[in-house]
């Protein structure tokens, strides 16, 4: 990008909240839990309202109400996605941006940060919501006793991670070799982070503070290619 460009593209991590959840007490509980895990992440964090299948929201006032509701939880409503034409008109009138539908699986969990292109400058973005740096790449074996931390980004390891080694990332973790040590993704509270590995023999896996030790891991998955994600606050391990 040439210097002096006044308009630049950037990627941000933005949380998406389904419109139907807004008045659901479960949202309050889910948010409270997330905020407790990483208060800084949610301080003034931007939110996109997902209107998929949502009735109403054809009036500007409804968006203002939603904005206040989220504001009360230290969240800032910045836009909508999956809006019907009438809803979009009302949202734009309320000063909200329109976001393209996200490519990840829609709303399996109440609140999950999703990467989305922000076309509007966000005033004072929360630190964790800032653009994610390029992923950290480690090509040497991670030996016992070594700790690697990919701050604010994803971690990609292309060599074995030994028992007694610890790999930590604020984003996702990919290991294209045997994972035998400990892996902790979403270390600063991103519950949407995942761990992927081509050979799963880990001592411990953790996402956003939820963890499983090898004793609790099902032996059938040992040695296989798996992904680990948080699903309704439960660590789930599936073959890939």
């Amino acid at each position: 990008m040439a210097a002096g460009n006044l308009v630049q593209g950037a990627l941000f991590t933005v949380m998406v909240v389904r419109a139907g959840m807004l008045r659901d007490p479960a949202l309050a509980a889910a948010l409270a839990r997330q905020v407790e895990l990483s208060p800084r992440f949610f301080q003034n964090a931007p939110v996109v309202l997902d209107l998929k299948g949502a009735a109403g929201f054809a009036e500007m006032a409804e968006f203002d109400a939603a904005r206040q509701e989220l504001r009360a939880r230290t969240l800032t409503l910045i836009g909508v996605q999956n809006a019907e034409p009438a809803q979009l008109a009302a949202a734009v009138a309320a000063g909200l941006a329109s976001f393209a539908p996200s490519v990840t699986q829609p709303g399996r969990r109440a609140a999950r940060p999703e990467p989305a292109a922000a076309e509007e400058p966000v005033v004072e973005p929360a630190p964790a919501a800032a653009a994610r740096a390029a992923a950290m790449l480690v090509a040497e074996p991670v030996r016992s006793g070594v700790q690697i931390y990919a701050r604010g980004t994803d971690l990609v390891v292309t060599a074995p991670v030994s028992p007694g080694a610890e790999i930590v990332a604020d984003g996702n973790i990919h290991v294209y070799a045997p994972l035998r040590g400990r892996a902790m993704a979403g270390a600063s509270g991103d519950g949407a982070a995942r761990i992927f590995c081509s050979r799963f023999e880990a001592e411990l896996v953790s996402i956003a503070g939820r963890y499983l030790v090898s004793e609790q891991l099902s032996p059938e998955l040992r040695g296989l290619a798996v992904q680990i994600a948080l699903d309704d606050d439960l660590l789930t391990i599936t073959r890939i």
Binding site: P141, V142, R143, S144, G145, V146, S162, P163, G164
Partner: peptide, 13 residues
């Protein structure tokens, strides 16, 4: 084996 792994890491760092 684990202790050896640790020492290899120390040699590398």
């Amino acid at each position: 084996v684990r202790d050896s792994d640790r020492i290899i890491g120390i040699l590398a760092s």
